[in-house]
């Protein structure tokens, strides 16, 4: 059981490290890009405050829970929660301060005296580059998860303990499934 637990944690850390593709903004010209950014900014403000509030609650709750709990597994959950809470406060603050990944480009274009035609051209080029970047990240994620799955299978083939073998095979299946999910 302990082996399974450690392997699940390893999988979860690995998944976290690989990163998740952020939501793609849909826009073909400056007007649609500006409208999408204004909507995104409203969402970012709400998201920012909700992350700060929930992060604070989770951090405080985690501290109280960890000190009052006698059970080691519960202490682990409360301890991890504290980290999540602080990270959420940081993320929420960043959301309020800097918005989303498109804000830098949007703010830069907004501050210029370019014509509408020039802005449309820049938006089109920028979105094309963004799509190419996302496609590269997607391929890297497929390759990485597939490689982890192969490694898990290799480890399972050499593992004498039945429970650990099952856990490694399960991890391999999960990683192959993750790799497959990126193909959709």
């Amino acid at each position: 059981m302990k082996t399974i637990f450690v392997m699940m944690l390893t999988l979860l850390m690995g998944v976290t490290a690989l990163g998740k593709t952020k939501k793609e903004l849909q826009a073909t010209d400056w007007n649609s890009f500006e409208a999408a950014m204004q909507e995104a900014e409203r969402e970012d403000r709400k998201t920012g405050w909700s992350y700060i509030a929930s992060g604070a609650l989770v951090t405080i709750g985690g501290l109280v829970g960890a000190s009052s709990s006698a059970d080691s597994q519960s202490k682990l959950i409360y301890g991890l929660s504290q980290g999540f809470g602080v990270a959420a406060i940081g993320y929420g603050t960043a959301k309020l301060s800097y918005g989303n990944e498109y804000n830098s480009f949007y703010d830069s274009i907004q501050g210029t005296e370019l014509s509408l035609e020039q802005k449309n051209s820049l938006v089109s080029l920028y979105m094309e580059n963004e799509r190419a970047k996302r496609e590269m990240i997607r391929k890297i994620n497929i390759a990485t998860h597939a490689a982890i799955g192969v490694l898990n299978l290799y480890s399972a083939s050499r593992e004498p303990d039945k429970d650990a073998k099952t856990a490694l095979q399960f991890l391999a299946a999960v990683n192959f499934a993750f790799a497959l999910s990126y193909t959709f």
Binding site: L12, M13, V15, T16, K20, T47, S50, Y51, I52, A53, S54, G55, L57, V58, G61, I77, L80, S81, F84, G85, A87, A88, G92
Partner: peptide, 28 residues
């Protein structure tokens, strides 16, 4: 809201309370 979900239920024979914290990939 944010990263936190609070859950609860009650009936005559059972009651439960829980929370879930999610970072987007990793949740506990």
């Amino acid at each position: 809201f944010g990263i936190l979900r609070l859950l609860a239920h009650v009936n005559e024979r059972s009651n439960g309370l829980g929370f879930q914290v999610s970072s987007g990939f990793f949740n506990l």
